[in-house]
Every structure is written in structure tokens, then in C-alpha cells.
Write a protein that binds this DNA or RNA. Sequence first.
DNA 1: CAGTGAGCGAGCTTCCGCTTGACTT
Length: 690
Amino acid sequence: MHIVLVESPTKTKTLEKFLGKEYKVLASGGHVRDLPKSKLGIDVDSDFEPQYVIPPRARKNIKNLKEEIKNADTVYLGTDPDREGEAISYHLLHVLGLKNYKRITFNEITKSAVEEATKRPRDIDMNLVDAQQARRVLDRLVGYKLSPFLWKKVTRGLSAGRVQSAALWIVTEREKEIEAFKSEEYWSINALLDSKEGSFQAELKERNGEKIEKGDVKGLPNKEDAQRTKKDLEKAGFTVKSIKQKEKKRSPLPPFTTSTMQQEAFKRLRFPSKVTMYIAQSLYEKGLITYHRTDSLHLSKEAKDLAKEYIERNYGKKYYKERSFTAKGRSQEAHEAIRPTSLSEKQGLKREEVKLYDLIKRRFLASLMSEAVFYSTNIEVEARNKNEYLLSANGSIMQYDGFIKVYPIKFQENELPQVKEKEKLEAKEIMANQHFTKPPARFTEATLIKELEKHGIGRPSTYVPILSRIDEKNYTEKVDKKYLKPTEIGRIVSDLLANHFPFITDLKFTAHMEEDLDKVAEGKRKWQNVIRDFYKDFIETLQKKEKELKKEDLMQEETNEKCDKCGGEMIIRMGKYGKFMACKSFPECKNTKPLEEDEEDTPEEEITCDKCNAKMQIKKSKFGKFYGCTNYPQCKNIKSLEGELDIKCPDCKEGNVVKKKSRKGKDFYACDRYPDCTFTSSKKPSSEDE
DNA sequence: CAGTGAGCGAGCTTCCGCTTGACTT
């Protein structure tokens, strides 16, 4: 009897089928040995010797494995073929005290791949294991040294780490960009032009040989300029200058990785990353898709055959196109891309599972289908009056759908009339439109993951935990249930780290680390030397900053308030949820109180409650701000903040129209006499409409 | 497309990357 050890329990049954009765397949369930949770667990004075322990979670399984291997002839270590997988094998070897073992790897769970693997066993690659150890030790040193620094200098319970702090910094910097952004006005001009064959729209591109670009304030910066140009164009003569036509091909996107699956599932299905991964896990356990935590784009021969047969049968031969995908960057290629394991109809799936499965299937099929072909036309139009102008119109028609048949994408079809060169055109209408440049958008879960992946920060198995982390620590919050915004404490932590430990917010740090780890994996460097190089500078700045930075300077502000318990001074301190006022003589006096509301939250003029005549105050709720009676909870009267729309309700003619937010966060307009009047509208009713 | 309001914080916290089942009442 031989035993094969793998990482995921869901693989064991399939493998047993392939390997036959001589083999029993068991799972480690991830890592089986790690640094202790309660202390650093690294002897920094003794060549960074790690002190590994078996985490409580793994104890039971290890006990079971020990029992199982007792009468095994050979133990095959079949963990994933990457850095972490190699380390898991190494730890299994030690924990189980294996003598008779062989290391085998396979990139896909097919009979041939697995049989091949057992024929070619090798030894454990200690260089690869060392690269993992270096990664682990570095992350531990950074996390377990910087977090306590934050406890001392800011407030208890905070955390910092190579990955989470980079993520937080990205969110914080974007917020600063948005705050610093100054919106600028610009105008665009479009002409509706008549030709013999029909009319089309062209956009103004040049004036007297000077380019007018969207958002380029030098072009048409204001209404005056736009109106003057519009007037000039209205009396201008228009001529077709040139017509360019060409075929444009559009290629399908590669099949899903964890990251792109999360992005598309959010875009197309509105699934948060966590939900996507939960559903994917279930599909994987049912054997319907390949492994869902992967950064590989690889498709096996079996996968391509599957797609070929399906595409040719359902859409025709010319729709199939064989392609090979390789991930750019640093994919560890332990698995395939995410794809369906078969293409037969699936039954008994939950509604959400169907949706995600369908998306995965379409994306996979599309990746092996032919390009879509568009016929695109560009018409340039000259105009002349007081000034000379150049306008341009783009048309595009899909000639052949190709992959778009199964994976619809957004594109605009626009057919232009068959004009001829030098043809005179007539302007039916000249339209001047006002625009404003927009600030960059806040990150969503999906776009933040994309950004992290771009810099090689984090792994497929950690994308969701990273998001949870910065959320649980109250470093970020969601705006409109979707956009990430740093909280006050998030900003303080991000700025502190960026100012004093710039390596951690340097997005290239991880990439450099990976280069070093590669050298370790190739046997060109000792892992301890990589760590030592980093640690020397790190611990030096840490010690320097410990002395230099005083919590008082960072966090405490004086106030004019007196403590109403002991009469002492009140100061502003920092907690997990932001600033608050506390008595200076803590811990003798434990008095605290919240800070005054922001000025914008106190009404400009006094509002009195029309039920009990008490004052009303601005309150916040999950649905936004509103006026609440200060007599609460005795008087529960409330008023809407945005009563100043000055539009009478078209239904009851008594109440005022107010803007509200639905549970889903969408704006709508309603009567403020609700529930007496139940008028609603998604658009703003006009005031003249009486 | 329909409701609304806190008040805590200040001695044992914390990392990243693998992987899922759950000691008992």
C-alpha cells in the first residue's frame, strides 16, 4: 500500500480512481507547520532560525495522517508544484517523520499526468523550500515588529504588513488625489451633417490647425469660446476631406484567473469577491470547475479538445481557434486557468452557481474562439468660415461575431453613410456641450485586487482576506456600498508608515523581494542572507523611530474643554474608530466623550420640531443624513434635510419633493408627506409642471 | 425605490499564504 499526500481534500477521490487500489490519497489541508501565533518565533540572533509549531487547526489531521502512514510502503508527497507546496511537503516530512518518501508533482488531475508523476519522483527541492521560508520569515518580521509599533504610537489592536499596508496605502493615496482634484470645465462641439446618403455626427477636432482634445482646457475652455465657435460653424461650408476604411480584429480575453474572475463577476453579476469565491469553492467541490485559486492562464490539452469539440458542434468549424496563454509576470503556474471540467448541461445548481458557472464557461469557450471582425470607417470633414476646422466621425460595424457569440462585450455599432471625397455637406445642427473633468474613481474591491495583482502583491488565496483585513481593522469603509474610502484611522496609519517606513508603501518592494526569492530558489543566494540584508536596515530605523516619535506629538491635541467629572483638562485621543475626547488624567479619571459634530452637521438656521417645539439636529443613518428631534426618544419626529428642492409634490400638491435613497443605494424622489402621500419618481419632477 | 437616531475607545493586540471543517450544549 502506497500513500499519496496532497493539499486539497477534494482531489483525493479523483486521484484514487486514477491510481488504483494500491494507493490511498490523503490531504494535508494546507500548511501543517507554521510560526507560533503568540510570539515572533524567529531567533534573529541565531541566523533567523524559525521555531515551527503545528497550529491547533492541523493537529487532529496530523494525528490521523500519522496513523494512516504506519503501514505504508512509500509515501508520495504530491502537494502543489510551487513554493508553498514544496514547503508543505517539507513540513509534512518533518512532522510525520517520514523515512520512505518520494516527492511527485503534477499540474493537472488527469490519469496520464498522475501516472507520469509517480514514474518520475524526485527529492524535495530545498532551495524552493528556503525561498518559502524567507518569504514567511520576512512577512512575520515586518508584521510582528511594525504592528506593536503602531500599538505604542497610535492605539492598541492595529496591524501592519507587507501586503495589507500596501493595499491601505493605495486606497489612501487615491483618496488624496480625489481631494486634490480640481474639476475643470471644457466644451465639445458636434455637428449633425447631411449628405446625399443620409446624416451623421462628427466631432470637432481641430481649429486653425490646433488640436482640440477632450479635457484639454486649451481647446474650448468655456461657454463664450464654445458659442463663438458654434456660431462660426453654423454658417460654415462643410466638405468631406478623407474617408478611411479598414478591418479591425478583436481578440477574446484569456480564460479566468482568480483575480479576473472576481473582477468580471463583480462587473457583470454584482457579486462581491467573497461571494464569488464562496460560489466557486462550491462549484469546485462539485467537480464542475478546475481549481479556483490560481494565477495561471494555462489550458490543458484535454481542455482544448473539450472546447474544440463543443465549439465546432454548436457554432461551426471556423469559430474554433487554438491559442496558448501564458501569464505575464510571476505566475507560479501550479494549476490551470479556471474553466469548466466538462461542457455537458448542469442540473441542480443554485441560481447564483448557475450564473458564475455560466460566466466561467463562456469566458473559457471564448478564449478558444476566433476573433471578431469589425469594419471601421473614419470620415474627416473640413469646415471653413472665419476659421478653419477639422471634424471627424468614426463608424464601426461588426462583420463577424467570432467569440462575441458566447462572450458579449460592450461595443458601439455606428453606421456612417457612404459619402464621397470632396462631397459637400450641410450642417443641420451644431451642438455645443459642456463637460467637466472628473476625478479618478475610488477603488472597488475588484479594482483594488487588480491593482495589487499588477504589482505582484498578494496571492489568489489571499485577495479576499486582504479586503476583509483592512475592513475589519476599520482602516477602510465603503461608500455607496461599493467604493473603498480610507477612514480617519486608516489615513493616520497609512501616513505614519509611508513617512517613516517607506519600504512598506513602496509598491515595488514585493517585486524586489520576489527577485531575491528567485535567487534563493535557484540556489544562488542563502535565504538567511536575503533576510539579513533587509532586517539590518529595518530594525535600525525601527529603533530610531521608537525613540524619535512620541505618541503625544502624533496623537494628542489640546482642547479648551474641561472634564465634567473631575474638572481637569480634556485632550483629543485616538481610538480604533477615530478621534475622541478623553480626560488628561487617565487612568485616574476615565471620562470620555465624543467630539463635537462637524460644522457641516450643525444646521445653519435653527430648525424646530413641529410636534414638540424642541430643536432639531442633523443625524446620520445608513440612509444618509436627516433632521432628528433633540427630544428623542420621547419625540421621534424627523424631517428631511434636502427639503429645499422647492418643488411641490405633483400628486398631493401639498408636500415637497425630496431626494431619497433606496435600500440599494439608488437615488429617487418622493413626497415628504410619506406615508400619507406615496408619490415616487426616479427622475426629478420639474417645478414648472403644475 | 420607504427607514432612519449608539457610543465605544485606554493592557496582551499583530503577519502572509496554504487549505476547509466545527472540541460541545
